[in-house]
């Protein structure tokens, strides 16, 4: 049982780190604000979710596990909202005919 939980931790945290890496590469390589946002928010939600999932078996108790899940939910809420706000600002700038941010 403990081996299975450890395996879950390794696999989930490694997968989470992979999504962060992919998101970072997307942030650096994608051509404009909207696609970069896409890369970043996916990394936040999925990457952090997988890392939290991997850490859950090692949490000190139910309360600590719930705190970890709460952190994930709060980050999802804030990154989704920040993504929306930045995307709207980018769209307004495009409508005004400003050149897209490099």
């Amino acid at each position: 049982m403990s081996f299975a939980l450890d395996l879950l931790t390794y696999v989930a945290v490694a997968a989470g780190a992979f999504f962060y890496l992919a998101g970072t590469i997307g942030l650096l390589r994608f051509p404009d604000t909207l696609t970069r946002l896409h890369a970043l928010t996916k990394a936040d939600n999925l990457g952090l979710g997988l890392i939290v999932l991997g850490l859950l078996p090692h949490a000190g108790g139910v309360a600590d596990a719930l705190k970890l899940v709460a952190i994930w939910l709060l980050v999802m809420l804030s990154s989704a909202d920040a993504g929306q706000l930045i995307a709207r600002a980018a769209r307004r700038a495009m409508r005004r005919g400003e050149p897209p941010a490099p």
Binding site: L77, S78, L85, R88
Partner: peptide, 13 residues
């Protein structure tokens, strides 16, 4: 909008 939404949801937390 989304800002008003988060400004309603987040402060209680």
């Amino acid at each position: 909008g989304i800002l008003a939404f988060i400004a309603r949801v987040l402060p209680p937390i």
